[in-house]
């Protein structure tokens, strides 16, 4: 089992736990590829999925992972709940807690919201994205995808392109990659790059071609179109021209690189359709690995030893 009770973020997450989750994910991936696709290991466990913010991929991925493990899961979304009536996070959660639950998955627009939850819940809390803070399960599925492709993560050269400053995916990916011994270069417009890159142990550049010819794998981040209204990017056209994974850029490379994207994609902005749909793109593998990773996380955090893998 794990040292950790919760999965809030990867910044201070033990490496041994991270490695165990990644390795176990491969076992679940094998199970997902059998005809039955199930491993009833969390029978009788109750998990509540609390999505205070919109989500498609992550929400479905967690629900599926819970079902494949035989857990009882209930969904809660802010738009149809008493949050709309003005209830505080604390009250909402304490009410749910009093209904006896074993685990909670939370997505919320405020950084620190998942940590806040651990105060009111006896069970395990899993962060499914808290504002611009962290998105640890996305980073774990990215690590699983990289390990699946390359066999190891240590020594890998990984580029991350886009809004590094505000992206929870970037932050969690950077923590995971550095912990596992990869080299990281981030690239994007200077208005969307962190000024504390050195402290994170990563390099920054504005030159995407340089990153692409250096890296083994590149992660393109979704450019949030609303950021443009904050004046940080002048236009989609300029972003696409300078920081987009264009077909032209990728095809002039003298090697194959693995192309990843956490989704949802803005085709024609941060990535060309031809690139997203190419052989080198593992974007749909990431989605399946997401289910396997989340099964692994839920199993390792919630399993009490009665049913072992």
């Amino acid at each position: 089992m794990l040292k950790s009770k919760h999965l809030i973020g990867l910044e201070n997450f033990p490496i041994s736990d991270l490695n165990k989750i990644i390795d176990t994910s491969f076992k679940f991936k094998d199970i997902l590829q059998t005809e039955e696709r199930k491993a009833i290991l969390l029978k009788g466990k109750t998990i509540v999925n609390m999505f205070f913010e919109n989500s498609t991929r992550t929400k479905i991925s967690f629900s599926l992972a819970e079902k494949r493990l035989g857990a009882d899961s209930i969904n809660f979304s802010a738009s149809t709940s008493s949050v709309k009536k003005g209830e505080t996070l604390k009250d909402t959660v304490q009410n749910i807690e009093s209904m006896k639950i074993d685990g909670a998955v939370i997505r919320h627009s405020h950084p620190g919201s998942s940590l806040e939850l651990t105060k009111y819940i006896d069970g395990s809390v899993i962060n499914a994205g808290d504002g611009s803070h962290e998105h640890p399960t996305q980073a774990i599925l990215d690590m699983v995808t990289l390990k699946e492709k390359f066999g190891k993560i240590k020594g890998l050269k990984v580029g991350i392109v886009g809004d590094i400053l505000n992206s929870r995916v970037a932050r969690s990916d950077i923590f995971a990659l550095k912990k596992l011994g990869a080299e990281v270069v981030v690239c994007g417009p200077s208005t969307l790059l962190p000024s504390d890159a050195k402290k994170l142990g990563i390099n920054i550049t504005y030159n995407l071609d340089e990153v692409l010819s250096w890296c083994d794998a590149v992660i393109a981040l979704r450019i949030q179109l609303e950021r443009m209204h904050l004046g940080r990017i002048p236009s989609k056209r300029e972003y696409h021209s300078e920081f987009g994974l264009t077909f032209e850029r990728i095809s002039k490379l003298k090697k194959d690189i693995v192309i990843m994207h956490p989704g949802p994609m803005n085709r024609g902005v941060e990535i060309d359709s031809k690139v997203a749909d190419s052989e080198n793109a593992v974007i749909l593998d990431q989605v399946l690995n997401g289910v396997a990773s989340r099964m692994s996380i839920l199993y390792l955090l919630l399993n009490d030893g009665k049913n072992n893998l």
């Binding site: 208005t191 004046g231 940080r232 990017i233 002048p234 236009s235 056209r237 300029e238 021209s241």
Partner: peptide, 13 residues
């Protein structure tokens, strides 16, 4: 853009 002091122009292009 339009010297309105609000939105950045496409300086790179």
């Amino acid at each position: 853009k339009n010297q309105e002091g609000k939105d950045l122009t496409e300086m790179l292009l």
